[in-house]
Nucleic acid binder design. Structure first.
Length: 495
RNA sequence: GGCAUCGUGGCCGAGUGGCUAGGCACAGCUCUGCAAAAGCUUGUACAGCGGUUCGAAUCCGCUCGAUGCCUCCA
């Protein structure tokens, strides 16, 4: 039996504002679309949090036994610097500044994006479509919206008529906005542009003669509006209505609102059953922004080459740190918070290793089955990874007690505990074990360490503490820590 | 200015009407040649004010503060 049949999952739907039982359109299958990055610069850490959150969600859905089609796009055209008429495409701008082809910009930062995500152990999506690869699909949607009367052409550009749409549909239902309020609060009154209303957004933009990124269309050469690609690609690969749409909180308005409007205006159906929004990451209590210097790139954390933290942190530690907060809460990144997570992460990983060597008894002091269900309950409650991790540490405590022979576990329970811990820690949270080095090297290290540990223990038996402490201290200086326990001495390598 | 979210013990961070979150730090103890590691024990916190209630961190109102969006942003 599939796990999802016995583990009812509730998720917070941004559209309704409440937790709902998750029921996919087609039993056993889930279609999920997540807005990917615009590849005009290095992916920054806040982006990573969103993709990390949805990676965890993807992993859990798969774990529950769903066949998941996970689509995450790459925006490589159409994303404008601002909404004004002279707004420049972000990628075209970067290309102009660096005097390279736009596709060189796209390639460079797509590679960077994949690179970083791989370091975080983020699984690749099922399909990763690009905006430029779906120009035809986007043009087709514009035609439909025009035919349905919810868009108008002006000087070779096509705009979505928000005001007209709002007369028969609810524009703003996702973000809780009212069009009247938005019109009343329009700041920029100077807009003497092609748009009938400031709230209208571009479906197709005319390309100026100097614009390099251009495609032919029924309205002349141009390029698609940013919001349109997601509608085109989600429809193509997941259908007109699909299960889950995710993205960062900042995309809720206007981007996701526009997606709903486009879908409803072209084929008359609300496109998404469950909207999920991952919350922002702040740095030292403030929004991350390049302009203020309150910003850090993932690689700068991994290498330690930055002015914000005193030491490097591994991708796994950063991932663990993020999993300790709920995806829908704002999370603040700081040195002390990372240090705390790093210690906790190591404790968890050492328990994972200790678990393999645990002695078993004829009885158990730990109700593994009940514990396991509590872990599932946490995940089933809108992917509550902080609670899951709290439960994992309960298991850590038990493992250490059993290791110390202060508690017992049966072989059967041990196997269940091992399987569960591996599923939660590695498969769901996506944390990696410590087998980073090559197997051959690690075998050699084990041999050397065995020798040093036995030499030290001989010295200790002879009360030659000068020698034994020399071994211990010099190993410590190399980053290898010795741990004396009831079962003898073990070691761990910090990295 | 508008909309939204939030304000939890030294720090991070769950919890949403009555019962222990968890991690890190700190302290005591056990273990140890001494340490480290590991274990055990200890912390009654919920921005402020008022209200509803037998009972509120949890519901309502106000005040203060923070963050996000409203213009490109995950």
């Amino acid at each position: 039996m599939q796990l999802y049949k016995s583990q009812p999952l509730k998720i917070h739907n941004s559209l309704s504002g409440s937790k709902e039982l998750f029921e996919p359109l087609n039993e056993g299958h889930v279609g999920m679309y997540v807005c990917g990055p615009t590849v005009y610069s290095n992916v920054h850490l806040g982006n990573c949090r969103t993709f990390l959150s949805f990676d965890m969600i993807f992993r859990y859905l798969r774990h529950l036994g769903y066949k998941v089609r996970y689509v995450r796009n790459i925006t490589d055209a159409g994303h404008l610097e601002d909404d004004a008429d002279e707004g420049e495409d972000k990628i075209a701008k970067k290309a102009r500044l660096e005097q390279i082809e736009p596709m060189e910009v796209v390639q460079r930062y797509t590679v960077d994006f994949h690179n970083i995500l791989q370091k975080f152990n983020i699984l690749p999506p099922s399909i990763e479509p690009t905006a430029t690869g779906h120009i035809i699909e986007q043009i087709e949607i514009i035609k439909e919206i025009l035919e349905n009367g919810f868009a108008y052409e002006a000087n070779g550009s096509v705009y979505f008529d928000v005001v007209k749409f709002n007369k028969s549909h609810a524009y703003g239902k996702l973000s809780g906005r009212k069009l009247e309020d938005m019109i009343a609060n329009t700041r920029d009154l100077t807009a003497q542009d092609e748009k009938r209303n400031p709230q209208d957004f571009a479906l197709w933009k005319r390309a100026e003669p100097q614009h390099i990124m251009r495609w032919p269309s029924p309205w002349g050469d141009g390029f698609p509006g940013w919001h349109l690609e997601c509608t085109a690609m989600s429809t193509k690969y997941l259908g007109k209505t699909f299960d889950i749409h995710g993205g960062g909180m900042d995309l809720k308005f206007p981007h996701h609102e526009c997606e709903i409007a486009q879908a409803e205006a072209s084929y008359g159906k609300s496109p998404v059953n469950y909207w999920l929004h991952a919350n922002m990451l702040t740095l030292n209590g403030k929004k991350m922004a390049k302009s203020t210097g309150n910003n850090i790139l993932p690689n700068e954390i991994f290498t330690g080459e930055n002015n914000i933290f005193s030491k490097p942190f591994s991708p796994a530690v950063v991932r663990f740190f993020m999993m300790q907060a709920h995806y829908s809460s704002i999370l603040d990144l700081s040195e002390s918070a990372l240090l705390a997570s790093e210690k906790g992460y190591h404790r968890l990983m050492e328990a994972m290793e200790a678990l393999e060597w645990l002695n078993t008894s004829s009885s158990s002091d730990f109700d593994v089955a009940a514990w396991r269900q509590k872990c599932y309950d946490a995940m089933n409650d809108d992917f509550n990874t902080p609670i899951l991790i709290a439960h994992l540490f309960e298991a850590v405590k038990q493992i250490n007690l059993i290791k110390e022979r202060k508690s017992d576990i049966t072989q059967e329970d041990k196997e269940l505990l091992q399987a569960s811990m591996q599923a939660f820690v590695y498969d769901l949270l996506g944390l990696e074990g410590k087998t980073a080095g090559g197997a051959a090297d690690s075998n050699k290290l084990d041999g050397v360490m065995e020798l040093l540990i036995s030499l030290r223990n001989e010295a200790r038996a002879n009360r030659d503490f000068a020698t034994s402490d020399r071994i211990r201290d010099q190993l410590a200086a190399l980053g290898i820590q010795l741990k004396d326990g009831k079962e003898g001495t073990s070691f761990s390598v910090s990295g």
